[in-house]
């Protein structure tokens, strides 16, 4: 569904991605793990068209989307819950969700609203509340729900677990799993929380300094000693529970 071929991306003189290739198949959950500054978020942003890649190609559903403006790419069926959530703080939860449905011009709005409220009942309770007054976990749920309102075929999630309590992380990851299983939603998940991400994902990639160094199924990567050493042992005590 999504093919990234040899993508190079840079901010000015700083090259953040040095020829990254990965694929995401229809109905898969693929995770991209890596340390801070490895280029995970840059890859996410590059898929969305900002920054545009210096070289390489990005195909979505067989069509070349390299270099298209962001809003055109997003209208093709890719949605993103961006890093740092980026909900609209002064708008109510309802209005935030309405913004997600803007691409569809409000078609299926009521139906989709009911669906995301079923997925995240917390949001239903808070529809009239302003986004900025939500807790971090609720904001993350809102960011995902807002992205789902676009009826995407591919959902990009950038560090949904960042700064959240383990229980909330589990809730969100369970929701992602359900979306994938019940609705066949394809997900590309960027995470630092490697343990949870690899357990959830069908396949995973490890990104180090702008280069993919390892790939395999989630279970394979979890078993690799270098992955454990670099990404798991430290965080495991609190995460693995």
């Amino acid at each position: 569904m999504l093919v990234v071929e040899n993508v190079v991306a840079a901010y000015g003189a700083i090259v953040a991605l040095k020829g990254v290739s990965l694929t995401v198949g229809r109905g898969e959950i693929v995770t991209l793990i890596g340390a801070n500054g490895a280029g995970k978020s840059t890859l996410m942003m590059t898929i969305c068209g900002s920054p545009a890649p210096k070289s390489g190609r990005i195909l979505f559903d067989g069509e070349d989307i390299t270099g298209l403006p962001t809003h055109v790419i997003m209208r093709r069926g890719i949605a993103q819950a961006p890093e740092g959530r980026r909900i609209f703080p002064r708008m109510t939860v309802y209005e935030n969700l309405r913004m997600g449905a803007e691409v569809l011009e409000g078609r299926h709005f009521a139906e989709d609203l009911a669906f995301v409220c079923g997925l995240f009942p917390r949001l239903k309770e808070r529809l009239a509340q302003r986004g900025g007054t939500l807790s971090g976990g609720e904001q993350q749920m809102l960011a995902i729900a807002r992205a789902l309102m676009m009826r995407p075929r591919l959902l990009l999630l950038d560090e949904p677990s960042l700064g959240l309590a383990p229980m909330v992380v589990r809730q969100i990851f369970a929701a992602i799993r359900d979306l994938n299983r019940d609705r066949g939603l394809t997900v590309l998940l960027v995470e630092q929380n490697a343990y949870h991400a690899l357990r959830l994902a069908h396949r995973g990639y490890v990104l180090v300094n702008g280069t993919i160094t390892m790939q395999g199924t989630g279970a394979e990567l979890l078993a690799r000693p270098e992955v454990r050493a670099a990404y798991l042992e430290g965080g495991r005590a609190q995460d693995a529970r």
Binding site: T70, A79, P82, M91, M99, R146, M150
Partner: peptide, 19 residues
């Protein structure tokens, strides 16, 4: 609504498909 979304967060507005 798009104006207000832009004021609130330009990157989010763009990622929701707004030009």
């Amino acid at each position: 609504r798009a104006w207000e979304a832009l004021r609130e967060d330009e990157i989010a507005a763009r990622s929701l498909g707004l030009s």
